[in-house]
Design a protein around this nucleic acid. Sequence first.
RNA 1: CGGGGCGUAGCGUAGUGGCUAGCGCGCCUGCUUUGGGAGCAGGAGACCGGGAGUUCGAAUCUCCCCGCCCCGACCA
Length: 575
Amino acid sequence: MLRMSTLLLRTLRDDPADAEVASHRLLVRAGYVRRVAAGVYSWLPLGYITFRNIERVVREEMDAAGFQEVHFPSLLPREPYEATNRWSEYGPDLFRLKDRKGNDYLLGPTHEEMFTLMVKGEFSSYKDLPLSIYQIQTKFRDEPRPRSGIIRGREFVMKDSYSFDLDDAGLEVSYQKHRDAYVKTFNRLHLNFNIVSAMSGAMGGSKSEEFLAPCPTGEDTYVLCNKCGFAANVEAMVTATQPYTGSAPAAMEIFDSPNTPTIDSLVDLYNKKFGESVSASATLKNVLVMVDDVATAILVPGDREVDLKRVGANLPGAKDVRLFEDEDFQNFPGLVKGYVGPQDAKKLGLKVYADPRVVIGSHWITGANAKDKHIRFVTHGRDFSVDGFVEAAEVKAGDACPECSTPVVIDRAIEIGHIFQLGRKYAEALGLSVLDQNGKSQVVTMGSYGIGVSRAVAAIAEQTHDEIGLNWPQEIAPADIHLVAAGKEDELYNFADKLGKDLETKGLRVLFDDRRDASPGVKFKDAELIGIPFIVIVGKSLADGKVEFRVRKSGDKSELSANNAAEEIFAAVRK
RNA sequence: CGGGGCGUAGCGUAGUGGCUAGCGCGCCUGCUUUGGGAGCAGGAGACCGGGAGUUCGAAUCUCCCCGCCCCGACCA
């Protein structure tokens, strides 16, 4: 039985000045965590019990799925990461250090290399596959900006799994097993979540899905269709398009457009000049970017912004996408800022990619590649062509669902899990292959699967808290019962002590507020802040043979007979 | 890395050139109190983030450095 009189716990009456989001504020105020450095936190007893409960659920579900637990060091030598090129690719996000002999080491940000090498060291036959192994391990990433308390730390605990299969069909099976295990895990954690399609991004690989816990303070934005259930990370959102059906316009026509460097000013001038009433969507915006040192124009309708993240994620092989800067314009003197058009792209030495909305046959008002001149009737396929289509425009609420055309909604969420099919990148780089049935060497294909364990503490806190405090699902809470002795008479404390022991005998976990020097008001506030699901109060009503039973989440209160309080509580709590 | 803000006791804060750095919470001692963050009395706890400078005098002004938070960039 945890006793408040001796627990290493001090709740805070005021919000800490450096905490903004609810989970951070409340976890600090309730005495679960303390900040040690930016993005680095210590766990106090209540917090660590909660953390371990989540860890236990994750471990049980991994084991139940038949995955084997292993454990790697956090301190790792440079060589394996050199072999996969990540020693340099990871850049400044990697915590690096040297040993006394001057050899390079790193603190593991993720462990693909180590898992791959472990399997390589032990297994060499197709008969050993499939295999899925996992660890629960502290990871280190020197994030450019840690934020939101333990939601994005520089040191955090992650469960990471890897699957090893001989072929793509096997990988698909392993992937589904992990997906199923994740659904079970997050359900047990009482997290509300969506599974969304994602881009596999920097890690390489193909199919990828994220588990997102919706929450206003989340840092991921995703798209959801309430009708058909389609869900996607904004990077992975696909634009629904229809072929152009109008008739071909007249030939291109240049017109004077003094002082119209912006879309709005252009639309104004155009409508006045030609007596029309077109909107920004009739204009074509040519956003100039550098894609890994290649000057590229991205074409989007004038009523849309370009989302560089989407461009980067959807241009195959693109590593770095950034906007043109002044010196880039100097390198391309033919480009007139604010008056760029795609019809001269070849001449200007530009690659051109179009958002899918710029369909073949559509015609546009766009820049004439001369100061104060625009051009109209510029037709895709007739007057200009593109090097390809790319998802480029920002996603907006109300865009059509690619599955069923219903307007989608946009929401924010915390990423609590990510699964993806890695493929053979790491197996190839590190030489992991096995002999198949024919005695031929085959490179193994891998999947990679992560759950943010420490982040899940914060995600659950975000989704379950209310104005007065935390509010844990029972399996995660640091105890089942928060037992409060409210009063000063010895009988109260003796009775409560006995009741606590009886509850423990029945298998319930009890946090007993046995502090003699705290007033009832303080104890009630603390109980609400700490967020254990059931609160039992032994107080003034004990004289009438009653104890009080409260449900933290609903606020429901009821009186139980003191005589068989343990039985009644047990029955109420086990539902 | 760009923009903004902050750094005074464990926590929250006041103090914009002048005496011994003030207050609330928390902590210690004593008495009182005990169903919604109690009261009284007495106490402990701060080289005011660090360094250099200006000044008779610096928490306060100047410069440099460090740390932290927020927005953006970036990111399982």
